[in-house]
Design a protein around this nucleic acid. Structure first.
Length: 603
RNA sequence: GGUCCUGUGGAGCAGUUGGAGUGCUCGCCGCCCUGUCAAGGCGGAGGUCGCGGGUUCAAGUCCCGUCAGGACCGCCA
């Protein structure tokens, strides 16, 4: 080792020892006859004192080695801000291991640079303690997950990242195959099918910290490649997976957030979550629940509401405490907010702070009876504002109110930023209607994925009311963020076939898309279930960050661009030819001939 | 695909009603300085105001386009 100690580890008890340190010049304070250098390595910072001129030439971020004696600081010179603040190192020898050019961004915990600059010089950005600690936290989170899972006899198994596309879902990233020009691998959106095959293989307990790829647009919590803690178990029920999920979050939050998760974590059904919070991932740090007014407002002459009610839809409301004191401009701002989400607007009534009298443009359209009972119906007090949404589509109106609920909490300052509110959302619907581009309803699609099992109640009859059928599917939610989700899988061929039939997937299509899984399921598949935790998002929350970029070593910008490597890049004509990008795939060759792999065909 | 915000020496910002590239903090270079810790003092260098076009006597400032970064909607089982 080049050094004998780590800079941040030195304490008063080291006084008198001669140590050799290696690290970077975090800061230099040159007083002429005495020069102080804050020496930083991964463990922290210690002050080194030089009496010799040679330290004069040191500059920020030079990489240096220093030998000297640890000693207590002179009386009154302690620095309580530093863990090593009671001592300093009196330098006897200095070696410059490498010099640093003037920095393109400051390596300083107190100053932030713009995102693209930080990413271009991510290796400098990560010398700062904040960004570095986020990655270290993630490392520890990985370790905690592995400890929990290995204690339960899980196997960590790697699955391919060059594979064929997972059916349905997001757009795939594609990789050309040189050996079979014109054919393509897909990068996996998740190891879903492989982990189910591992259950057929009798592995029983599988996990993987798995990289996944989806070619969709970015968000603060979305990158094109991301990581899941992916878990699958055989011979278990939904309860077993939920119990495991609770141990994981309990250990993670206990150690990394210093928060004791109260177990069991409360559960909401998907329908309750939508009815009460207008979201399938409700933020339970505050109340502000939705109220359905479909029956209350029955018979109203206000066309917006009457139309929704007549169409068998939904009218509901959410209350903004103190919202009546908003200016006209702020209230108008809600209309723009609603329109930005694709809604026509957000009807509102304000209740006069002293009299409780309903006011606002919508109030004129409601009958005396409807107005007088409104405050009680929605639980509003004088001084509050009541926002309404109405639609023939229940879910659409509820989601608008749910989004309004979140916005209300932000604007009214109702969010306790220090709180952690966990819940499971269970009993998710199996199917939802699909509509083609012309708006015509065209059939059903799986809400989760087509291998999700109906629950016991619906297993025999989901075809009778696909819109009401419930699945053994569950999401774990914290503070309005979905951090994981999973389901019990179908393991019976007859049930799977009925699901495919409902989804309009013909046997030929099913064969073409995932024949290999159906083939496997012919050989005694065990009942199995699993869950995947969105690992970037989980680590982001644990580290108190607002973007998953902070817990990814070398993230990409919004356009899929990596400012550091400048990927993606064009390829040469030769690469293009070699990769077979423009080649037409050969006409279907006879299986097993001419170097063409034989597909696995079920009999 | 859509809406919105941002772009000014190396970094972070300010820049008023359209009136000379003006200012602030940090960094950088040189000098001074023996107890600082975001050290201090003196001096200096460094900018095609993202790019292109337009309006104007005059544009960092107003308009149009475009590029880049960010937030959100669509999308993401």
């Amino acid at each position: 080792m080049i050094r004998t100690h780590e800079a941040g580890s030195l304490r008063a008890e080291h006084a008198g020892q001669t140590v050799t340190l290696a690290g970077w010049v975090a800061r230099r304070r040159d007083h002429g006859g005495v020069i102080f250098v804050d020496l930083r390595d991964a463990s922290g910072i210690v002050q080194v004192v030089f009496r010799e001129e040679d330290a004069h030439a040191l500059r920020n971020e030079f990489c240096v080695k220093v030998t000297g004696e640890v000693r207590a600081r002179p009386e009154g010179n302690d620095n309580p801000e530093l863990a090593t603040g009671a001592i300093e190192v009196a330098a006897a020898e200095l070696a410059v291991l490498s010099e640093a050019a003037p920095l393109p961004l400051p390596v300083d915990d107190t100053i932030t640079a713009s995102d693209d600059l930080r990413l271009k010089y991510r290796y400098l950005d990560l010398r700062r303690s904040g960004p570095a600690s986020a990655l270290k936290l993630r490392s520890r989170a990985n370790q905690i997950a592995r400890e929990v899972l290995h204690a339960r006899d899980f196997n960590e198994i790697e699955t391919p990242t060059l594979t064929r596309s997972t059916p349905e879902g997001a757009r795939d990233f594609l990789v050309p195959v040189r050996l079979q020009p014109g054919t393509w691998y897909a990068l996996p959106q998740s190891p879903q099918l492989f982990k189910q095959l591992l259950m057929v293989a009798g592995m029983e307990r599988y996990y993987q910290i798995a990289r996944c790829y989806r070619d969709e647009d970015f968000r603060a919590d979305r990158q094109p490649e991301f990581t899941q803690l992916d878990i699958e178990m055989s011979f278990v029920t939904q309860e077993d997976i939920i119990e495991l999920g609770e141990e994981l979050v309990s250990k993670l939050w206990g150690e990394l957030a210093g928060y004791e998760v109260q177990l069991p974590i409360p559960r909401l059904t998907w329908t309750d979550a939508m009815n009460r919070y207008g979201s399938d991932k409700p933020d339970l740090r505050y109340g502000v629940e939705l109220t359905e007014l479909t029956s209350y407002l029955d018979g109203t002459e206000f066309r917006v509401f009457a139309g929704a009610i007549a169409a068998g839809g939904y009218v509901g409301a959410v209350v903004m405490p103190g919202g009546a004191s908003q200016t006209r401009k702020e209230l108008d701002g809600w209309q723009d907010w609603a329109k930005a989400r694709g809604a026509r607007g957000l009807a509102y009534v304000t209740l006069d702070a002293s009299t409780g009298e309903p006011k606002g443009p919508v109030a004129k359209n409601l009958s005396e009876a409807h107005l007088s009972g409104l405050a009680d119906a929605v639980g509003a007090k004088p001084g509050d504002a009541v926002f309404f949404a109405a639609s023939a589509e229940r879910r659409e109106a509820q989601e608008l109110l749910g989004a309004a609920r979140i916005e209300i909490a932000k604007r009214a300052g109702l969010i306790d930023e220090s709180a952690w509110a966990f819940c499971w959302v269970v009993d998710a619907p199996m199917f939802e209607k699909t509509s083609s581009d012309d708006g015509q309803e065209s059939g059903w699609t799986a809400v989760h994925h087509p291998f999700t099992s109906p629950n016991e109640e619906w297993e025999g009859k989901f075809e009778e009311a696909p819109n009401k059928a419930l699945a053994y599917a569950y999401d774990i939610v914290v503070n309005g963020n979905e951090i994981g989700g999973g389901s019990v899988r179908i393991h019976r061929g007859d049930v799977q076939k009925r699901v495919f039939d409902l989804l309009g997937i013909t046997p030929e299509e099913a064969e073409d898309k995932f024949g290999f899984l159906l083939e496997a399921f012919k050989y005694g598949p065990p009942p199995h279930a699993g869950i995947a935790l969105g690992w970037d998002r989980t680590c982001m929350l644990l580290s108190g960050n607002e973007s998953i970029r902070e817990v990814i070593a070398f993230p990409k910008t919004r356009g899929g661009y990596d400012p550091l490597t400048t990927a993606p890049t064009p390829i040469t004509a030769q690469q293009r030819t070699e990769a077979g990008i423009d080649a037409k795939p050969k006409a279907a060759a006879a299986p097993g001939t001419d170097g063409v792999a034989a597909p696995v065909l079920p009999s």
